[in-house]
Structure formats: structure tokens, C-alpha cells
Amino acid sequence: MAPPLTPADLTPALLRGALEAERTERGGLLPHRLPAWARAQNTDGQLTMAESQPSGVRLAFRTRATVVELDTLPTKRAYVGVPPRPDGVYDLVVDGRLLAQGSVPGGHVVTVDMTKGTFAHTPGAPGTLRFDGLDGTVKDVEIWLPHNETTELVGLRADAPVEPLPDGGRPVWLHHGSSISHGSDAASPTAIWPALAASAAGVELLNLGFGGGALLDPFTARTLRDTPADLVSVKIGINLVNLDLMRLRAFGPAVHGFLDTIREGHPETPLLVVSPILCPIHERTPGPGAPDFSSLADGQLKFAALGDPAERAYGKLTLEVIREELARVVAQRAAGDPRLHLLDGRELYGAADYAELPLPDELHPDAAAHRRIGERFAERVFGPGGAFADR
């Protein structure tokens, strides 16, 4: 007869990849990837949603359990006129190997009508994820939470004691970027490109990739400054273009200020600036970017650039302009900062990749492209001669 499942203490000590864990009204934990003081300075609903989606966040513990159950309350998104999104995926990793996957149905639902700009919230109930058939030996277990669903952790049960996983002593890689780093359109949380690169390089990932939120916000820079890390990278550009947020006059000084702030807390840490991957709609056409509502008739969401290429003469940003200015800023700073590096994002995904693995919505890589980007990042950045080779 199998032993009964016993509740485990659901404490922040079990979490990796989160900067804070908020206690909820039902006594659960809500992981956050920005600290409370930074969230208080934010007024953007998109960033509020993105930072609460636990990309790169996982429960990590050591146990002999053969059965593990996790109760969660997910918040799912639905878009009017677009086919339903699949439930978020949880990845079970045991002793470094992906062993199983699962989902939690139900939960809250936020329905977005992009043609009207409205949001509707439908409350839901928690669900249960169950992994069984595990061997009874001592093992290191990680449950990676869905990268694209806000996830409140409600309860944890197992048929053997659960202890927080000890620090393995691996270098911590702190990364900040946009929805591509967040994992948009990746197959699962361990298949987002930063997770793939971290696994290949043997480093501990702390992912501050925020869908729609890589905007050179000062509170994000201060968060990066104050977060202990052995390696730091920032991927800058696409959100500034598709939100049409600033002009060239403001962009260069803003990048300098962002890097200055990071360097206050990490004066000699290897610091990598990554420019945008190829995105043809915004290479020479400024933002804003917006959903192409005509594509909804086919049940597929695509994006289009609404700017005028002629406006580049007036300081509007395109991806070509962004790359040129980032190269200038990094070259200027690197003369006195030998651990500052630049990677052209087109080395990760360029024209040949777009021809083979086009962006399905004209903005985000698919699962196969995430894998390619992750493999190339690991090779070019963590490999011989790379910015993080001496980790």
C-alpha cells in the first residue's frame, strides 16, 4: 500500500528564479520577478502581468518521493477572435533531466478584446498537478512553472519529506529582455531560449525577460543592480521600437544610464549587451507595432509596423538604428570597461533563419527558433572566446 501524501511547507526557500514571493489571501505563494518597490513604481498593466508570469521560476527540492502533487491557481489569457491558447505547461526535471510534463486546467481567465482594447476577468478555482511513478531514491527535483501564466502556488504534497535544494554553486546568470527572452511561443518553460542556453552552459538562470517590458525603465536597472549575479546580460531594442517609446536623442543617453546603474552594483561582472534579432517588419520601419486585425479572420494573430520609414530622419527608431546606436555606445564604454561586450542579435537569428524558420506572427520566434537561439547563445557567449567563457 502506497504511503499517504503529506503536505509540505510551501515556503520561498523552495523557489528559484523569483526575486520575491508574495503571500496570498489563501495562504499560497505568488512568485514575482520584480521586487515590491519596483512594482510600486510601475503603472503599466502589461508589465504587471509579465513580471508575475514565472518565466524561469521553478520549485526546487530534494526528496525520496515517488508521488508529488502541486495545487496552483493559474491566470490564463484568452483573445477574442483567436483560437484558444493551450494550458500552460509545467516541466518536471529530475537530476537535470526533463522527465514529465503536465498542465493545470481551469483557474482565472483574462479575456482580451484587441479590437476594443478591453479586458474581462473571470474568476476560477485552483487545480492539481500530479507527478507519480518516480523512483524512491534521493533525487533533485525541479518543477518549472509555466512561463506564460501567472501562477499562484497553493499547496504541495508528497509521499516523502521535501527539503529545499541546496545551492549547487553554479554561476548565476541574470538576464533581462523582451517577450522573446520571456519565452513567447516557446513550447514549455525549459524550452525558452534562456533556459536552453543556461542548461547547456551549466549556469543558474535568473530570467528578467518581460513581454512588452524591456523599456530601459530605471526601476528595472536598479533591480538588476541590486540582484547578486556572476554574469549579466541585457537584450535591448524591440520593445522600444514596437511601442514607439522614444527617439534617437533619448535612446543613447538612456542606454548609458541603464548600464551606469547596473555597473553600480556589478562593477566588474561580465556584462553583455545584445541587440535585436532580425524582425523584418521593424528593420527599417519605425513603430508603433500593432496587431494586424485582418489576420484574425483566419484565426491567426500577426503584427504589423505602422510607422513611416521616412520618419527615421526625424529620430524615430528602427531595429537598424537601434543596432547602430548600441554598437556606438558599447564601443565608447568598452574603452574603459573591458568586461562589457556586445552581441549582434542577428548572430542568434538572422535572415537565413527567417527564411527557414519564419516568425509565425512576424514578431516572435516559434519553438524551433527558440531552440536555435538558445544553442547559438550558449555557443557564442558561453563557448570559447565568448563574453561569458571565463565564468
Rank of each mutant, 00 (worst) to 15 (best):
residue 146 P to N: 07
residue 205 L to H: 03
residue 162 V to M: 01
residue 202 G to F: 11
residue 153 L to S: 06
residue 200 A to W: 07
residue 159 D to K: 02
residue 203 V to K: 01
residue 180 I to A: 01
residue 130 R to E: 03
residue 175 H to W: 12
residue 170 R to N: 08
residue 144 W to L: 10
residue 165 L to D: 04
residue 206 L to T: 01
residue 168 G to T: 03
residue 139 K to W: 03
residue 181 S to R: 05
residue 142 E to G: 12
residue 164 P to C: 05
residue 142 E to F: 13
residue 200 A to D: 14
residue 181 S to C: 07
residue 184 S to R: 12
residue 204 E to H: 09
residue 194 P to W: 12
residue 132 D to R: 04
residue 129 L to C: 00
residue 201 A to S: 07
residue 169 G to H: 02
residue 162 V to I: 06
residue 198 A to G: 13
residue 207 N to A: 13
residue 181 S to K: 01
residue 202 G to W: 07
residue 208 L to C: 04
residue 158 A to N: 02
residue 204 E to P: 10
residue 186 A to I: 10
residue 143 I to W: 00
residue 145 L to P: 08
residue 131 F to H: 08
residue 134 L to H: 10
residue 164 P to M: 02
residue 178 S to F: 01
residue 134 L to E: 12
residue 184 S to G: 15
residue 155 G to D: 05
residue 188 S to D: 11
residue 132 D to W: 00
residue 143 I to L: 09
residue 156 L to I: 14
residue 141 V to Q: 06
residue 179 S to K: 04
residue 166 P to H: 01
residue 168 G to S: 13
residue 142 E to L: 01
residue 162 V to N: 01
residue 181 S to L: 07
residue 159 D to Q: 02
residue 198 A to V: 05
residue 205 L to F: 00
residue 142 E to R: 14
residue 190 T to V: 10
